[in-house]
Design a protein around this nucleic acid. Sequence first.
DNA 1: AACTCCCTCCCCGATTCCGGCGAGGGCGGC
DNA 2: GCCGCCCTCGCCGGAATCGGGGAGGGAGTT
Lengths: 242, 242
Amino acid sequence: MGFLSSIPWIEKVLADLESAEGLGDLQALAERIRAEYGVGHVVYHWVNSAGQQYGCGTYEPAWVQRYLDRNYLRIDPVIQGCYQRFHPVDWKRLDWSGKVARDFLRDAVAFGLGNQGYSIPIRGPNGQFALFTVNHDCDDDVWAAFTEENRRDLILLAHYFNHQVLELEPGRAPPEATPLSPREIDALTLLAMGYSRAQVADTLTISEHTLRVYIESARHKLGALNTTHAVARALQRGVIVV
Amino acid sequence: MGFLSSIPWIEKVLADLESAEGLGDLQALAERIRAEYGVGHVVYHWVNSAGQQYGCGTYEPAWVQRYLDRNYLRIDPVIQGCYQRFHPVDWKRLDWSGKVARDFLRDAVAFGLGNQGYSIPIRGPNGQFALFTVNHDCDDDVWAAFTEENRRDLILLAHYFNHQVLELEPGRAPPEATPLSPREIDALTLLAMGYSRAQVADTLTISEHTLRVYIESARHKLGALNTTHAVARALQRGVIVV
DNA sequence: AACTCCCTCCCCGATTCCGGCGAGGGCGGC
DNA sequence: GCCGCCCTCGCCGGAATCGGGGAGGGAGTT
């Protein structure tokens, strides 16, 4: 991962952490990053397609637990906001109106979070979604200067965290199913576009019976229970693009 | 976009290109990148959720046209391979077995492409998928050294291209539809998991009639023509994750 | 307090989809 | 040259889904 070399302090830190292994590495790295930049918190949060979460960083364990207990994932404006974008987002630009969002923020501050935040979303196939966040307590001007100056480092660090987590997550490759045939892809693609079976058959200029053979074939290949499921899986696996 | 500042030549080039505007900028930038690194080709290729494609780079127009004409998007192992990952990929690590893939490669070389390539996939919500590719003609050792040395720059440049394209693509925000309610999300999520309506209603412990209200409501919000379409759109927009 | 949105339930009929069956010709790979 | 996969077509009945429609209580926002 030589691409981090533009970050002055990174070599030494990574060397220090070499002895550790697995995800503990990243936890320790987050601590070091916090120290190097003198910010309140550094956190990496990752959600895979199965809804499993993984996180590491400098948040208080009590806050992490509360976040999970209260299912804040569905409330957190940072998640909500970043999920739709994929460029770094300053927390100020998010939508904090609404009662639940304000309550959430108040709760977060009570657990030691700062009022400023900067989050970098990274996405992968199969709904993988990760967030690298830096949190701090300061006024707007100071924060704007900080983010402007260190954005590049943060992007690269986000990539690094993501790379490490994926390396340690072997649960991606297995569903390496048999590929879909062109006609099967055509069929699922048109279905995903909202066409009815009759319309799809007409568009492909085949009989509806033939179409059904494709759909069923695709369903079996994808291990899907019905047509909607097949379309969903095909989309998730990226075998069709609508 | 100060995060590019670690690339020595970038400031001057960006200043030179300041006068140009729009996507022409990126075309010219690709040319400059090719010159700076002394490689065969530099290309940025972008596909959005509507299946629209946009590309800029140094490939011969004849090759681009042929790529489109022959619908190589569905054949290209670079696309196929990168779509499932989201870390930089050396073309050597892709699957070039199979007749169509080999034919494709032969055709590409005939149109001036080199035998080496390095592609950086970047993904966004709504099925956005972009590829930043560097292509060259040399032996494996030289190429390995090149990629190792310049990976960081390439990642940052990929981000830059992506940022610029999204800035110039106002067609993203409009479908800023009303958000789905929690129950609607539950319903679509379970449907995407392959459950039948009866099973979903049972799982949510509501009547099937109520469930249908959610599905229809979600369908209208998503502008979907039927249930399968609604699930597909919800997946693409990232409002549900199965 | 008015407003909007969410959740829940019910009616109806027509349309569509599901699931498994069989059968033939063609192309590419081993 | 054989095997496997792909493409194409047909029939069947039962089950599920798709359209709207109306109606009430509750919570949050303004």
